[in-house]
Write a protein that binds this DNA or RNA. Structure first.
Length: 569
DNA sequence: GCCGTTTTCGGCCCGACTGTTTTCAGTCG
């Protein structure tokens, strides 16, 4: 699939044009095209072959021609032209905070800066500070930017971001000057990774709040502090994370929260819509002329624009504004709709707890059932179960089910799909199980699509776990055609998983939405290896909500009775 | 470069903060 390749090319063209001082709107157009490429689930070559490129929003005649040219020849004239005269490492420097295209172009033209080494040199010898409209302080800020750039700068997993944010929020709530504190930005939208943590604060005395905010013990550096807006770094080294706050009066809470939650693309669309209607939207409210007509609540802000309120997870400019206009937003799945967890491991394989301990923890979450899905025999890396030990596990589950009132433990297994495309567990064993998961744990590059489809065709298999195999922070995933996998799942009426482990979230939101649209059922499971891991469910639900999923799309919202009926089909 | 139940041309979100300005440019979100 060349989707990401093309996205990278368009982003680089945008960077290059920005560096060269090209018209801003042309640059925005290339960035939009890049984003469109990244969000496609279908292979761009398939779309091109169908002649449907220009049906993608953000792709017009010009960019469509460039895509066709690239797919046909492996080259793109515009790309070559845009990058002509630009040394390979130069545009990378645009990732340094406080160093934008204008300053970089100036440093390049006047001082011959072409890479990080050059940049450091002209900072050290003072020549950068001597350029037009430059000075000591500006250079100092660029130096700060370089430090942050070299330290970390990677997006962090949502799990880690939530922990940092929750601690910070607890600290902020202790201040008597703070009225409301609300994590917003990508965290509130439950994005799978987080760049900066954004926190909205309302209160009266901004200066006092700013002071208190920057005195948080974990702050390692203050990046900038005004009266209503502050940025700090929390932690050091690879752990360092940027936290931004915005302070506004209580009566503007809704407008402020809407603005600070984003996404940027959503807000741009919203503000454009307001403009068409003769209104203006900002963090200070919705205005018609000078008159403020909304701002106290988010509901109010959306309402005056003719829209119903929408959950933060939808706010990505992926059709939610259009749907809200027609009052056709999905009624999203809630965490409280989840009645059980259908993938977890006990100490029989590589889990840390007993089956009883897992059941107790699940009961405490209000669940009606769980499936114990220990690894199968070929999974030696995970202490996979021999048939004898599997039978022992069944006996224990039977005993527990007799003991536990109003709670059910399903006999499950996570069976390995072998490189031969066969499952490592015999059908006659699978036939005796309540819930059969098949998954790839070996041969990531060997006919994965075909092997998964073969597993889906097996009448005893209910679900494919983590269908792409990606690990967000460290692994790309199997060499698999997910479009085909979706087709197979639909054909055999099987379930696909949203694995809720925060480093998997697999299927991701885009494929989850595609699956839903096709009519495929999903299950959201934590893949817990200990009782505490069951709490990861909220990340899986977040991904599901970002994929527009409703209760009816997810099988572990069914009651035990309904689930048994569903699984027996 | 994209896009159109107000337009095939003329629009394209809005504001904070910083520094180097003598009224504003650059950067960021």
């Amino acid at each position: 699939m060349k989707n990401q390749e093309l996205a990278d090319i368009f982003n680089q063209i945008a960077d290059a044009l920005e560096f060269k001082g090209e018209m801003p709107f042309r640059i925005i157009a290339y960035r939009r095209a890049a984003r469109a490429m990244e969000e496609l689930t279908e292979d761009i070559e398939t779309i091109t072959a169908k002649g449907a490129l220009m049906e993608i929003p953000g792709i017009g005649e010009g960019i469509a021609k460039k895509i066709e040219e690239y797919l046909k020849t492996g080259k793109m004239k515009k790309y070559r032209e845009a990058l002509s005269g630009i040394k390979p490492e130069l545009l990378e420097l645009l990732n340094i905070q406080n160093l934008g295209p204008k300053t970089l172009a100036l440093a390049n033209k006047e001082l011959g800066v072409n890479n990080l080494k050059d940049l450091k040199k002209v900072i050290a010898n003072g020549s950068l500070a001597n350029l037009f409209r430059m000075g000591e302080k500006k250079v100092e800020n660029i130096k700060k930017g370089i430090e942050i750039y070299e330290q970390a700068g990677e997006r962090i997993p949502i799990d880690q971001a939530l922990k940092i944010a929750e601690e910070y929020v607890a600290y902020l709530k202790k201040s008597p000057d703070v009225a409301q504190v609300e994590p917003s930005g990508s965290l509130r939208r439950m994005k799978e990774t987080i760049g900066d943590i954004d926190i909205l604060i309302t209160g009266k005395d901004g200066a006092k709040i700013v002071d208190y905010f920057t005195k948080y013990p974990k702050v390692s550096r203050v990046l900038g502090a005004g009266e209503t807006k502050v940025s700090v770094m929390v932690g050091t080294g690879a752990e360092a994370t940027q936290v931004d706050i915005r302070i506004l009066p209580v009566k503007l809470f809704g407008a402020a929260l809407q603005y600070f939650t984003g996404s940027k693309a959503h807000n741009v669309k919203l503000r454009g819509l307001a403009k068409d209607k003769g209104m203006k939207v900002s963090e200070y409210g919705v205005f018609r002329g000078k008159k403020m007509i909304a701002g106290k609540t988010e509901e109010e802000v959306y309402k005056v624009l003719g829209l119903t309120w929408m959950p933060p997870e939808l706010r990505e400019d992926r059709g939610e504004i259009e749907a809200a206009m027609k009052n056709q937003l999905p009624k999203l799945l809630e965490l409280s709709d989840i009645k059980g967890d259908l993938q977890m491991h006990s100490h029989y394989s590589d889990g840390s707890a007993t089956i009883q301990e897992m059941a107790k923890a699940a009961q405490a979450l209000g669940y009606e059932y769980i499936a114990i899905t220990d690894h199968s025999q070929s999974a030696q890396y995970a202490h996979g179960l021999s048939i004898d030990r599997l039978k022992k596990e069944w006996d224990e589950i039977d005993q527990l089910n007799d003991k536990l009132p109003k709670f059910k433990i399903l006999k499950g297994i996570e069976a390995d799909i072998l490189t031969s495309a066969k499952l490592d567990t015999a059908d006659k064993i699978l036939a005796k199980m309540d819930f059969v998961i098949a998954s790839i744990h070996q041969g990531f590059k060997k006919n994965v699509t075909q092997r998964i489809c073969a597993a889906l065709a097996n009448p005893y298999v209910h679900m494919i776990a983590h269908p792409s195999g990606r690990l967000i922070s460290r692994r790309e995933g199997y060499d698999v055609d997910l479009e085909k996998v979706l087709e197979c799942a639909l054909k055999y009426k099987k379930v696909l998983e949203i694995n809720a482990y925060y480093d998997r979230l697999d299927l991701n939101e885009l494929y989850a939405r595609k699956a839903k649209d096709m009519g495929i059922k999903l299950a959201i499971n934590t893949d817990a290896h200990g009782p505490k891991d069951l709490e990861w469910m909220r990340y899986g639900v977040g991904t599901a909500r970002r994929g527009w999923l409703e209760k009816k799309d997810v099988i572990n919202t069914l009651s035990y009775k309904e689930l048994k009926k569903f699984l027996s089909r």
